[in-house]
Design a protein around this nucleic acid. Structure first.
Lengths: 248, 248
DNA sequence: CTTACAATTTCATAATGTGAAATTATCTTA
DNA sequence: TAAGATAATTTCACATTATGAAATTGTAAG
């Protein structure tokens, strides 16, 4: 555990959409660090292109991160192969599709695509939601008890009217997900939205990600609900096959 | 200059689309570092979520980078304001539009949007090209002599049939760019493509970025060439105005 | 011009990262 | 399946390096 590297990471994490520009002392205060130390770290990060220094001697995130990010994308085998398949989904129906992966009790969205007419959804690539409160998350939990354990240990809290906050109820729900092969999130994560998700399997048959389609409750529960479910499952299966998974 | 942070950055930069997965010793060799030291750094980066460790104990880039990246995006004032304007451009014409900014002798593309029917262009968000060989780059060079100096000092080399490799020729070209207010790259950067770029100015009137439209030589030089030029210039001006620049 | 606050630099000291070597794990090949 | 080869990980003494208090310089506001 190398302290200075850890600190450097924390410094980068200080920046957000709310606070895109920070001064040296601001950073130091936020992290409870000495201003001199902070300054050394910040200067190093500037030299590496990770931060950029203003003419006002304030700091912002730099280009290096864009470069790194692209490599995260490429690295995700799943990514390239999934894009066209997910796009098909949003052309067939109106809504927003995500691919989510599990990390530390949460779902991280690694892909987001919306139909032109879709109502806006508050997610973005890289953003996170509690696993137990999302359709993608519940798929991932239902196929991996270690994930479930990790999630439960962090506690369940109300996110929207129907969030499942009872552990036994959650386990029942996940059992059902395993049985039917898809998960549903109805007003569990944000009010008014309804998601349907299905598992993406790696070549080895392990559930490594989930695709979903999210839309307004009324639309998703409407006449083509069963068609949507089938399509989401099909998309997930196609992606799995692209990844080399062979159905038994 | 904090060594361990510098090293950590270099480790992250080791990963690329060609080598998305690396082992500890591979990294160490690539950077000429001790394997033990590398291991400590890599472990720290894993704990921070910047890297992910395989079940084979090999490493890939992690989620943290996605999170950070999103903040780079948000932070770019230019970004939010520019997207709708650039989209207009690619709806009017067929092609790929970029916004590029200068960094260390190169253009970094911070935005890329293509028309549905556009032929693929080998760029992506975060990718780089030599400044002297691209339309966006030449705009940035023509308004900033420090940029030009930096670029020249790194040398000019052939990128495509028409790349300008002579310093004086380049200077002449940049003079013209300043005069007409836009730049043209005709087979200078990749064979068969033609780009037209115009400057984006900040509130203070400084050229901070450039927009371009890229397409096949035949199309771009065709009947609506002058209309394209005018539109690119207009787009650039609209973005500048969005950023608070007031024309004198 | 003065005051106040933030950024930067300095420097002695303590803490921390370093790398050679040992150990353990994994993969290859016979 | 065992032996050999290669890679990952751990250990530890030492030297390097980061640390933070304080001094200095820079900047903004009144």
């Amino acid at each position: 555990m190398i302290e200075s590297v850890k600190k450097a990471c924390h410094i980068i994490s200080c920046f957000s959409s709310e606070e895109p520009v920070l001064g040296n002392t601001e950073i130091a205060k936020k992290l409870g660090m000495n201003a001199g130390t902070t300054h050394h770290l910040v200067t190093t990060l500037c030299n590496e292109g990770v931060l950029i220094r203003d003419h006002n001697r304030r700091y912002r995130l730099g280009w290096k991160l864009l470069e790194w990010n692209n490599n995260v994308m490429f690295q995700q085998d799943i990514y390239d192969k999934a894009i066209p398949l997910v796009k098909e989904l949003i052309h067939r129906f109106v809504g927003t599709a995500h691919i989510g992966m599990f990390d530390k009790g949460e779902v991280v969205f690694v892909l987001k695509v919306s139909s032109q007419e879709a109502s806006p959804i508050h997610t973005y690539i890289g953003s996170r939601k509690p696993a137990y409160a999302t359709s993608t998350g519940k798929v991932l939990l239902s196929y991996n008890s270690a994930y479930l354990q990790e999630t439960i240990s962090r506690g369940l809290s109300m996110q929207a009217p129907n969030t499942i906050t009872d552990i036994n109820k959650l386990k029942k729900d996940l059992e059902m997900v395993r049985k039917v092969g898809y998960s549903v999130s109805n007003n569990e994560n944000s009010t008014g939205t309804y998601g349907i998700a299905a598992p993406i399997l790696s070549y080895s048959g392990k559930t490594i990600a989930a695709v979903n389609l999210v839309g307004p409750v009324s639309y998703m529960q409407g006449s083509n609900r069963s068609m949507i479910i089938q399509s989401v499952i099909n998309t997930a299966q196609s992606i799995s096959q692209e990844l080399g998974y062979i159905e038994v």
